[in-house]
Amino acid sequence: MQTFPLTLVAGPPGAGKTTWIRQQLDGAERFAYLNLGADAVRIDATYLAAEVPELVVWSSWLPELADFTKYQTYIELDFHIDLGSLVLPTEFADCHRVAVLPPGIRQTEWHDWADVIVTGTETRVPLQPPQLWRSLLTGQVLDFASLTTVWDELINGAYGHVQRAKGIFEVTDGRSLYFDFVAGDPEPTSTELDLPRWLEGRPNRFSGVEVVGEQLDETAIAQTLKDCCLDDRTLAYYQQQVREFLEDG
């Protein structure tokens, strides 16, 4: 039976699965990535594709088996996928299984499942399945000052206890920004993705947000993010201002 160069990566939210995969891609060629469980909110896939332009991302469709022979493929399993009930093609039986786990935890289902345990970032492993809220924001452009306010409120508990939050947001000056937070991390990060500025109309590239936690006020989060979004007239005005500013050097 043919075997495939395939690695499955699992772990709790915020442990560093995507970060570990990102590290494996440095200097390599012919790599592919698939995120199982992200559905339409392809934050990790978009982040990796921006970081490693030559990466092949299978994010919205399942490739043919033959495609797996062409690439060293990493499949990231979202934390809410039940490892026990995960059924893979028999051809994948020999695949490499990596669990990225916070330091110090033992005897979990990930230990039983994985071939290799990688020590990742400190994060709390929830006893109960946490609440997961996602929203696709593609086409929306947010005012940067508003975004930083709502993000600060979000990660500091204004809308419920947040264990993990990440998002890709389009902002007024055309940049695409990646925001990343894990509870307990003293320095939540935000970085600009290496993508061209979008300064003509509404962006049709992906943006979206994912929040994991407890007692999340999903309605309030959604409404507050909506309040940060520019209408067509305001967006056109600011895009013109930024274009003129950039043209003037």
Binding site: D143, A145, S146, T149, V150, T224, D227, C229, L230
Partner: peptide, 9 residues
Amino acid sequence: YPSLLAEKR
């Protein structure tokens, strides 16, 4: 107002 959000609030 410093932001859209501040204005709406």
